[in-house]
Write a protein that binds this DNA or RNA. Sequence first.
DNA 1: GCCAACGTTGGC
DNA 2: GCCAACGTTGGC
Length: 138
Amino acid sequence: MNHWLVKSEPFVYSYDDLQRDGRGTWDGVRNYQARNNLQAMRLNDLVLFYHSNEGLAVVGVAQVMKEAYPDPTTDDARWVVVDLAPVLRLDRPVTLAQIKTDNRLNEIALIKQSRLSVMPIKPQEFDLILSLGTHENN
DNA sequence: GCCAACGTTGGC
DNA sequence: GCCAACGTTGGC
């Protein structure tokens, strides 16, 4: 089981939208590194859902429902998508500011590679963000 | 709206 | 293969 983080601008596609739809196709990736990460996703891997530009926080968890297949929004065979479904909305979003000030998250790809839109997350980073976003642990 | 940090493109 | 110019992302 691997862990990931994906970014979405909430005014384009938010966690609310994913919950409303029940399942969503993660399309539009046009960056090789992000593409490679999409291809490495396996069924049932867990994905942190981050709102960029507005919100600036991890707002929920999603799960990989279908592994990488060709991006239907382009004829270019280089690009792929995965399907995601919502699993859990965090009780309270874990903000970028919070992540930046937590020493345990110094090495997180979200900070180290701020422009990457699909990135791997270490299990301990994933667990920590989940607990920070859950009321009973705060 | 600005700018830093990239990634891509194209001339040489 | 290098690098300047340009485009994009995303935080502030």
